[in-house]
Amino acid sequence: MTHKHCYALLVSYDGAAFAGFQKQAPLQTVQESVETALAAIGLPVGIEGGGRTDAGVHARGQVITFRTREIVDAAALPALLARHLPRGLAIRQALEAPWSFHARFSAQAKVYRYRVTTGPSPTAWEQRFTWTLPDLRGFPDVESVERLDEAPMRAVLAALEGWHDFKLLAHPRTSGKTRRLLLRATLETTERAAGGARYEFVFRSPGFLRHQVRNMVGLTLTAGLGKLEEGVLEPLLAAKGDRWRGPRSPGRGLMLEEILYAPKDDPFRPAA
């Protein structure tokens, strides 16, 4: 009897090059690109992704699994696949995992990081990987932003933590269970040499709804600009009334930082 094998890939990508993770023919997606590369080296298999990132969203710690009857030299996979992958997509590590491991269903939590830049003269990197303010598409009445008010932003982030019904902060066509646990919502700030600051929001949850993180960032920045009306937050988190109609942050500032697994299940965690 031929045994099947499970292989896990740790993947990073520049989301600007892709129309999201999931297949959307004829668009270039991460799933389509990895499956095409695997087929090119003799492994015509489907893959399982740990996080389904949207168009423009980046990843540093995406996890992918695939299953095959072939015995594969996992250590050689990054170099073999690199010859067939498009620019902006890289396999950081590959190894054989237990058959029971699944990139998505074995996950205990996901960590997303969102970067925002204020101040003059944003660099090319900041324009590609952060939301640079001012942005007249998001805040049409804000022509200049040097600093954001951190106190109201931290208050919003603290309110977002815990169990809430995030339906009104999710994509309008979101279905299924919308009550979710947000384990962490924090803010890190650093000064920019050119002026202004870099704001990095970190969110951790067992599961996010589509557009939830981007809407939470838009909501938080609205508070940081002094434009969040009193009494808006509580009904939003109770799924009462209208959905969030304020700005949704663009995908380019969002990064899938890490997918967390139980230590005994995580193939990328060194054995204790």
Rank of each mutant, 00 (worst) to 15 (best):
L77C: 03
I64H: 01
R147E: 07
T2W: 15
G251V: 09
Q62G: 00
R198A: 12
A272G: 12
R192I: 13
Y261C: 10
L77T: 03
Q127D: 09
P26C: 04
D149I: 09
L219R: 04
E200G: 04
K177C: 05
A124T: 15
E126H: 12
L89K: 00
T36H: 15
R214N: 03
A124C: 10
A223G: 11
G56T: 13
L236P: 13
V11L: 10
V202A: 12
P26T: 01
G20N: 05
L260M: 10
R252I: 05
G226I: 11
D54C: 03
R245D: 04
D54K: 06
T130H: 08
M255L: 15
G176K: 15
L236A: 03
A79N: 12
L182G: 00
L183F: 09
S100M: 00
V156T: 02
E96Y: 08
I41Q: 06
H211L: 02
T65N: 06
T2A: 13
Q108I: 13
K110Q: 10
A103R: 03
V57C: 05
A239S: 14
H211P: 01
L85D: 06
L157M: 03
R173I: 03
E191Y: 03
L169W: 10
L27A: 10
K4S: 09
A40P: 13
P78K: 07
Y7G: 02
M216Q: 12
G226P: 13
P172M: 03
L136W: 12
M1E: 10
A151T: 15
G50W: 00
L95C: 13
L95E: 10
F139N: 04
G138H: 15
P235C: 09
R179T: 08
L209T: 05
F208H: 05
A185I: 08
T53A: 11
F66P: 06
F66H: 01
L148S: 04
P140G: 01
G51R: 07
P263S: 09
R52N: 08
A170I: 12
I47Q: 11
L181I: 06
G207A: 11
A151G: 10
A8Y: 06
L169E: 06
A194S: 14
L81C: 01
D265T: 00
V111A: 08
K177F: 08
A107V: 09
K227T: 03
N215T: 03
W244I: 00
G195Q: 07
I41D: 00
R87Q: 12
A197F: 05
R69W: 01
D141Q: 14
P140R: 06
R83W: 02
P120H: 14
